[in-house]
């Protein structure tokens, strides 16, 4: 009797796990469709709207502060002392 209960519990656990695994395996669809991206595509949303100005900003901070890297300008260092 106890053995049957054990088997049933095991079957439920395996079935649930399989359902869970197959559920997770469903591909996640891109949830923001191309036609829904007009706000993000607006020029005012561009972080690199003024690349020449961003390069100067990064240069000023790199010369005055110790932190460097991850500026987003693809820089290669101050090149100055």
């Amino acid at each position: 009797m106890l053995h049957n209960h054990y088997n049933r519990a095991l079957i439920i656990v395996i079935t649930t796990s399989l359902l869970g695994v197959t559920g997770c395996a469903q591909p996640i669809e891109p949830w923001v469709k191309p036609y829904e991206r007009q706000n993000l595509a607006d020029p005012i949303m561009r972080t690199n709207r003024h690349p020449i100005a961003n390069m100067h900003v990064a240069h000023v901070y790199e010369a005055r502060e110790s932190a460097r890297g991850s500026e987003g300008t693809g820089g290669g260092g101050c090149g100055c002392n």
């Binding site: 706000n39 993000l40 949303m45 972080t47 932190a67 460097r68 991850s70 987003g72």
Partner: peptide
Amino acid sequence: FSTKLSASYY
């Protein structure tokens, strides 16, 4: 080593 987190919101 540097890590930067950015967010842009319309």
